[in-house]
Each structure stands twice: as C-alpha cells, then as structure tokens.
C-alpha cells in the first residue's frame, strides 16, 4: 500500500513537472524530460533482452528443456552482431548486410500485401452501385464516388485546372478539406483525451491520498 502511494505521488509530481512547461521552460520540466527518455531507453533495452533475445534466440540456440539446440539460430545471431558493428568505424560496413536482409525481407513481404490491402481493396470498395438502394444509401454512395473521382482529378496535373477539370478539382479540394477537418477534429479529441486521463489520475488517485482532499473527489 505504501509503495502504491509512493508510485502515485511520483506519477503526480512528474505530471505536474511536465505541465509546468506550459508556463515556461524550467529545471523541473528538463529533469522530468530527461528522466523519461532515460527510463524509456533502459526499460526498452532490458525488456527486449528478456522478452525477445533470450526466448527467441538464446533459448533456441542452446536448447532449453527437452528441445535440442537449433544451430540455424547462429545465422540471426551473427546478423544481429553485425548490426552492433556500426559502433566500430572499421567494421561498420558489416551492418549493411543485416540491413539489406531486413529491408529485403520487409519489402518482399509487404509489397504485395500493402498493394492488395491499401490499393486494390480500396479501389474495389469504390466501385459500387449507385442505384438499387434507398435514397440515403444512394446519396452516400454518390458522395463517395464523386469525392474519390474529384479528389483524384485534383492531383492530375497534366491538364490545366480549367473548365470541367477545374470544377472537379475544386470539388476535390473541398473533399480534401473535409477530410483534413475530420482529421483535425479527431486529433483535438485525442489530445484532450490524454489530458482527461491525466486529470482523472490527479483528481481521483492522487488527491485522495492527501487527507484534506479525501472525500472531495473520491
């Protein structure tokens, strides 16, 4: 219980130190910022050693329990060590072999799937019947088709944006503005949500640990 309260107080004080930047830059903010970066890096390194390297590489390489050692694991181990060669200027070129492996595998695996998921399926989703549904669905489908076509016309620069093409491009701009507006609105909501989360923590977890506030917010 005591450690829980210590944790809550640490969280609250660090939160207030970070928000103090809104007034002006100050040593409390700097301290918290550096603490966060250092802690995150340290946590990430240790977490990956124990949750990625040991179970996925070391345990398989040496063979834990009834499992026999998997000598194929030497290949990824060596490639991983090559990445660390960047720390030594003379051997830095070795890391290119590992990077080539990562880039090649990533590109090979994602090229087809990305094209299928984010291009073909989206195009297919735009080829829809305008008739045969109710008025509401008709309007919805019409807006979708007109919006996509006009949006694409806006990015078509081989013809001057005049006449019919100019009108379509202007409609396309309007559609894009609506999309940007929706994104902006959602972004505002996201940032406010994070603030709400921290204020809830301060009001309902931290303040009740102070005797004079107990009961007011709990």
């Amino acid at each position: 219980m005591t450690m829980e309260i210590v944790g809550i107080w640490l969280g609250a004080l660090l939160t207030l130190a970070l928000y103090s930047f809104l007034y002006r830059d100050n040593p409390f903010y700097k301290f918290t910022e550096h603490l966060f970066v250092g802690m995150s890096a340290g946590y990430w390194v240790i977490y990956n050693i124990y949750n990625v390297l040991i179970p996925n590489l070391w345990d398989r390489l040496v063979g834990t329990g009834d499992a026999a050692p998997d000598m194929m694991m030497i290949i990824p181990a060596v490639l991983g060590l090559f990445m660390l060669a960047r720390l030594v200027p003379k051997g830095a070129g070795l890391s290119r072999i590992s990077l080539a492996m990562i880039v090649g595998t990533g590109a090979g695996l994602s090229l087809v799937t990305t094209f299928r998921t984010n291009c073909l399926s989206q195009v297919e989703g735009t080829i829809i019947a305008l008739t045969g549904a109710g008025t509401g669905q008709f309007l919805s489908n019409l807006i979708l088709v007109v919006g996509v076509v006009c949006g694409l016309v806006y990015f078509f620069f081989s013809k001057p944006h005049r006449g019919v093409i100019g009108g379509a491009a202007n409609t396309g701009i309007t559609v894009l503005m609506v999309a940007f507006g929706a994104s902006f609105g959602y972004t505002v909501m996201a940032r406010i949500s994070l603030l709400i989360g921290q204020v809830q923590f301060l009001l309902f977890e931290w303040l009740p640990t102070i005797p004079i506030f107990r009961g007011l917010t709990g």
Binding site: T113, R116, S183
Partner: peptide, 21 residues
Amino acid sequence: MMAKDTYGVPVGGGCTAVSAP
C-alpha cells in the same frame, strides 16, 4: 494486411482518435 487479407480472419479494431480517420 496479414490476418484479414491473407488468412481471412475477421478483424476488428480500436485506435487512438488521431488515427481513426
């Protein structure tokens, strides 16, 4: 990309508001 479009597993999601659109 992988679960739905490659293996046909239905996928649902929850995301931050920033990435919802």
